[in-house]
Write a protein that binds this DNA or RNA. Sequence first.
DNA 1: AATGAATGAGCATTCATTCAT
DNA 2: AATGAATGAATGCTCATTCAT
Lengths: 202, 202, 202, 202
Amino acid sequence: MARKSNTDQRREEIVAALLATMAEHGYEKATIQLIAKRAGLAPGLLHYHFKTKAEILLALVKALAEQGNRRYAMLADAAVTPEQRLQAYIGARLGLGEGASAAAVAAWVVIGAEAVRQPDVRAVYQEVIHAEAVRIEGLLGDCLAALGKQQTQVRPLAASLIALMEGAFQLASAAPGAMPAGFAARTALDLVNRYMALEPAA
Amino acid sequence: MARKSNTDQRREEIVAALLATMAEHGYEKATIQLIAKRAGLAPGLLHYHFKTKAEILLALVKALAEQGNRRYAMLADAAVTPEQRLQAYIGARLGLGEGASAAAVAAWVVIGAEAVRQPDVRAVYQEVIHAEAVRIEGLLGDCLAALGKQQTQVRPLAASLIALMEGAFQLASAAPGAMPAGFAARTALDLVNRYMALEPAA
Amino acid sequence: MARKSNTDQRREEIVAALLATMAEHGYEKATIQLIAKRAGLAPGLLHYHFKTKAEILLALVKALAEQGNRRYAMLADAAVTPEQRLQAYIGARLGLGEGASAAAVAAWVVIGAEAVRQPDVRAVYQEVIHAEAVRIEGLLGDCLAALGKQQTQVRPLAASLIALMEGAFQLASAAPGAMPAGFAARTALDLVNRYMALEPAA
Amino acid sequence: MARKSNTDQRREEIVAALLATMAEHGYEKATIQLIAKRAGLAPGLLHYHFKTKAEILLALVKALAEQGNRRYAMLADAAVTPEQRLQAYIGARLGLGEGASAAAVAAWVVIGAEAVRQPDVRAVYQEVIHAEAVRIEGLLGDCLAALGKQQTQVRPLAASLIALMEGAFQLASAAPGAMPAGFAARTALDLVNRYMALEPAA
DNA sequence: AATGAATGAGCATTCATTCAT
DNA sequence: AATGAATGAATGCTCATTCAT
């Protein structure tokens, strides 16, 4: 081997550059030229490492999903009771404002809109949402069980929580100020907890 | 009198065509040619009635906002108690599934993503969100007052409800099936009602 | 109708420009820019009248085929005996050197090579060859009948004549000088006539 | 002795890979990457052994010409009478269908089209055609001499035979089925023999 | 000799916008 | 008001060629 491959690193750099560019310009206006400039690479190189621009987008969606997985794995270790795990989860997902993730949130909103029209993106987006739903249903089920409540509403409740979070990302990106800073996580948690508190016993 | 101007009607046709095209192709891929074909008009005519493509988009955002206003005005007349009004409101906004509005919902999601990058769109989007927030805060305030509860959490609660609705639109457009059909409105209402039920008295 | 369509004329101009450009540069090097310049049109206009560059090529193949049809129709009227018709046919097809058609001949050679790899081009090319074969078989059959000869070899003889003509085009374009000027038609006719003269009687 | 040079072998491998790739994709679409993959070599290596892609093409043209020479040399030994030599020659050249040579035939057709526009290719192509013409003229001259016929038509007859063969290659590659299988060689031989049979005596 | 990442010019194609009719 | 041809800048992508290793 006369030259060691740096493909994995380059791909990550390119994906990161798409994230940043997309957060600012949207997907269509995130041109290969612009992404390349942000990554400090020659435009042609992006097509050496990725066949098409759409492929970079898919890699980004997957990267963001994996990032979510890692965050979830970390918190799952730390928390003990079901309530703590739920709180930690919502806090991790909605704990916005830490600078670095603002771009990721904006990019995610753009991805959500691309999922409306691009079948490939939609497929991956749906996988991510579904995995999230499964996780939340597990967390809520544990909480309800610990409270001795019925679990018939787990699915719509989980779906509503996901909707609330996706909507919070949308508002944070397109209408900052609409959501009182930092209150999203707290209010979401209260909503869910009070809902469960008033569920009938099992 | 030569020939009466049909400008207003033409503008509405064009805006409607953008709505339909955008729901299917997104904003950038909703080309003037495509919009014109959908409207049954010549491409050049679109630039006679609108200076730029961006202007059509702004007209669409405003049209969707006004449509929301009209729906609200209608329901406000019918309902009597604060609880009825809140239920009617959420039902009207989240009562998806009536076919015709699926395109409007998808277009709204796309608009939300455009608001991330287009200042003009963002400004109008924020106006719409703000007006909605004011309305919901009024509704929630009335409900809490009728229940004799404190009203300190009206703002974050209203913001969360908006987030939930925007997120529900996103899921309906990009991940149909994630949200159990028709449950969005019911669960949202339950969440809010139980939250209020457990608020401290004023 | 506010503006009359000139599409047909423009398409012909574009096809003619491709013919000229291809004869000089081949298909791949006949860029849209080059073709447009030759036609005196803006590059973008070529894609207004044709969806793709490949579509222009197909239009050219069909145009050349029709041109051949017209030439054949003309001569069919003029000639009387089978021998005269055969002579006229070969003369018309191989009567090279009249300047204007040199480009067409070169373009046809390039088309033949494109037919090797482009299925769409190959399909049309085969249609043209087949139509030509049918015609020649008819001509040869008439001649053999008039001579009272058997007609069992009509097919391979026609195929050979087509091959000879296609090859003559190739030599005329890529190796002028190899074929003694103007002798192609005469030698081809002699070859066929002597072949038929020595066929067994029917 | 460090490591013996394998340059010659590598060059042959590369040329063979161009032949195969060109037969399938044409010259322009036979990219260095594609040729390298077919040869099982790294793309960069092709430019170590050849300065440019055009140089590989020239090497291929020469290789095909030499291959023809070798075939001719072989048959020349075996045959005795002029008629036998002519028959052997035509049979060797037109004896298509042996699988392995289909790609070579297709590549040759593509080369013929490149000769239309690339002066370097044209020069070599013409050399090959000229050498072929000289050979055929020799063969035909011998046949006519043996028959006691005049030899005034040797040149156009040889040119026509070359045209027929080049055209047969074209048809075999782009319109298989047009030429009744295996009949090309037989019919070509008959055409030439009957032509000679009816030549005036010397 | 060999590798494969890197470059950048060039390509077909798209598309908002203009404009003569 | 309306048409649809025309423009040209911009975009994603290709690819021969180079070069550090």
